[in-house]
Design a protein around this nucleic acid. Structure first.
Length: 489
RNA sequence: GGUCCUGUGGCCGAGAGGCUAGGCUGAGCUCUGCAAAAGCUCCUACAGCGGUUCGAAUCCGCUCGGGACCUCCA
């Protein structure tokens, strides 16, 4: 197999992928903070990494995929004081914080399943790893990179910077970080402006709290990922992923914590997915321009003309490279829907293609092109372009304009099965498609009648049947092998 | 204010010094009783202005537009 190249945020270039301990691959992806519904932008990241996970598996790697659930410690704002997101939401909804966590964790899993994402091998929660986070914090203090103020433990960025490059991931200089920023207030406890909390002292009214060497409190946002990735993947592992928005703060701090704790760079390849935008602006929870997956599927949203099926949305995302912004619009979605249908129709044809003694099509070349696209930093849009070239071949073979041998056909089927289903994680949308026995029976009867009148050249009746069926979104097509029907959504 | 990314045909989106993306849409043709599907053909673009080069959408500079990060966010 040809080598795989991927873009490493750490070095800002594409690098040949060489795992630390092949064929094992350790991959950690920052999961959701479960205090509200995941929106489509969040989903894009998880879908992108699902594709990456799937391709690594397909390439023969033995991947340990860890994706966390953040269910504690994520504060509102960067003031390192006050309520965390769960406590705040719990107050609004008048329930326990863990009810919030449970509700949105279940919702998250439901959405992931709808998008046909494979579950990660390990899905650890922050609250399930409090002691690991405390241990790591202790070690960072021992190493001299953190200090305690009023029961809160802060990471000492300035101290860290004497021997380490804090801005290694974001490609920023410390001086710029210190000078170029907007005014923040309420930071009296910190020594340095960039310092961040590893452990946070819980105020009396704070519900989610655990005992620690520094009193009752809860973990900071960044420490969980460092502690949990270390626990399950080791002090050094291959891939750490997340959205690009996490680079500057969350991942920068993760690197600092791990280096301070273990004196080694924790991650070999940092991978980041780009943002989903709506009308050119980033989709985000705070901006209030987020789409919920459910709204997208049902079409129940002011900006949507109608609903789109999960696989159409997934295909839509696959048509853009994971490191490019993807702008969301009805037109783009509709175009993807048509294209997806076209591709799935061709794949269905694969089972009925006529075999010839020779091939007029070059399957080996197509296969080479597909792998080349994926090996070039998981370039799914280029992969799809090649697969559409193949769709034309399939249709031409079906129309007897091209020929294929049995061996080549087996290869071709394998190619589409591998790339479309296994790697891109797409599948047939089965909803309301010929799977209702009653509908099947009725349609057979109606089409039999239509066939009868057509044999008598009674096209008026024939067309009447077709037009009437169209009114209830049933499309009848006359092929050379007789009439077929399908339901439009 | 600082740092950085980006500007591709009607729309979406790849590519990245010389060859050509791909999807959707529109027009025409073939097939068909007619449709539909499918195939073929056409509409052949790289923000603007300069520069480097035999040659630039691709490199450099400037101008204009869009965006991200520096505050929580995938």
């Amino acid at each position: 197999m040809e080598p795989l190249f991927l873009y490493n945020t750490l070095t800002r270039q594409k690098e040949k992928f060489q795992p630390l301990n092949p064929p094992l691959v350790g991959m950690y992806v920052c999961g959701p903070t479960v205090y509200s519904d995941v929106h489509l932008g969040n989903c894009r990241t998880f879908i992108s990494f699902d594709m990456i996970y799937r391709y690594l598996l397909h390439a023969g790697f033995k991947v340990r995929y860890v994706r966390n659930i953040t269910d504690a410690g994520h504060l509102e704002g960067d003031l390192d004081e006050g309520d965390d997101k769960f406590a705040k939401k719990a107050k609004i909804e008048q329930v326990e914080p863990m009810e919030i966590v449970q509700k949105y964790t279940l919702g998250f899993h439901e959405v992931m399943a709808l998008f046909n994402n494979l579950p990660p091998g390990i899905e650890p929660t922050a609250t399930g790893h409090i002691s690991e986070q405390i241990e790591m914090t202790k070690k960072i203090i021992v190493q001299g990179f953190a200090y305690v103020t009023n029961g809160t433990v802060y990471f000492d960025v300035e101290k860290y910077c004497t021997n380490n490059n804090y801005g290694i991931l974001s490609n920023r200089k410390l001086d710029d970080l210190l000078t170029n920023t907007r005014e923040l207030n309420g930071q009296d406890e910190k020594k340095g402006r960039l310092d961040f909390a590893l452990w946070i002292n819980a105020k009396p009214e704070h519900i989610m709290r655990w005992p620690s060497p520094w009193g009752w409190g809860f973990p900071g946002w960044h420490i969980e990922c460092s502690a949990m990735s270390m626990k399950y993947l080791g002090e050094q592992f291959d891939i750490h992923g997340g959205g690009m928005d996490l680079i500057a703060t969350h991942h920068t701090n993760e690197v600092a914590q791990s280096v301070a704790c273990n004196s080694t760079q924790p991650v070999k390849y940092w991978m980041h997915t780009n943002m989903l935008t709506v009308n050119g602006a980033r989709m985000s929870k705070s901006a209030g321009n987020g789409f919920l997956p459910k709204e997208l599927f049902t079409g129940n949203h002011p900006l949507l003309e109608r609903g789109y099926q999960p696989m159409v949305v997934r295909f839509f995302m696959m048509q853009t490279h994971y490191r490019s912004t993807l702008d969301f619009s009805n037109e783009a979605l509709k175009a993807s829907e048509k294209g997806f249908e076209r591709m799935m129709n061709a794949i269905r044809l694969l089972d009925n293609l006529k075999i010839s003694n020779s091939s007029s099509v070059n399957i080996a070349e197509l296969k080479t092109l597909c792998y080349a696209a994926m090996n070039d930093d998981f370039n799914t849009p280029v992969l799809i372009a090649h697969l559409f070239d193949g769709v034309r071949l399939i249709n031409s073979i079906n129309d007897s304009k091209e020929t294929i041998t049995e061996t080549d056909l087996v290869e071709l089927k394998k190619l589409y099965h591998n790339f479309v289903f296994s790697v891109m994680g797409l599948k047939e949308e089965t909803t309301a498609k010929n799977n209702d026995e009653l509908a099947e029976g009725l349609m057979n009867a109606i089409l039999a009648i239509r066939k009868e009148v057509r044999s008598k050249k009674d096209f008026t009746t024939s067309d009447l049947i077709r037009d009437e069926l169209k009114k209830i979104n049933i499309i009848v097509k006359d092929t050379k092998d007789g009439a077929v029907w399908e339901q439009e959504n």
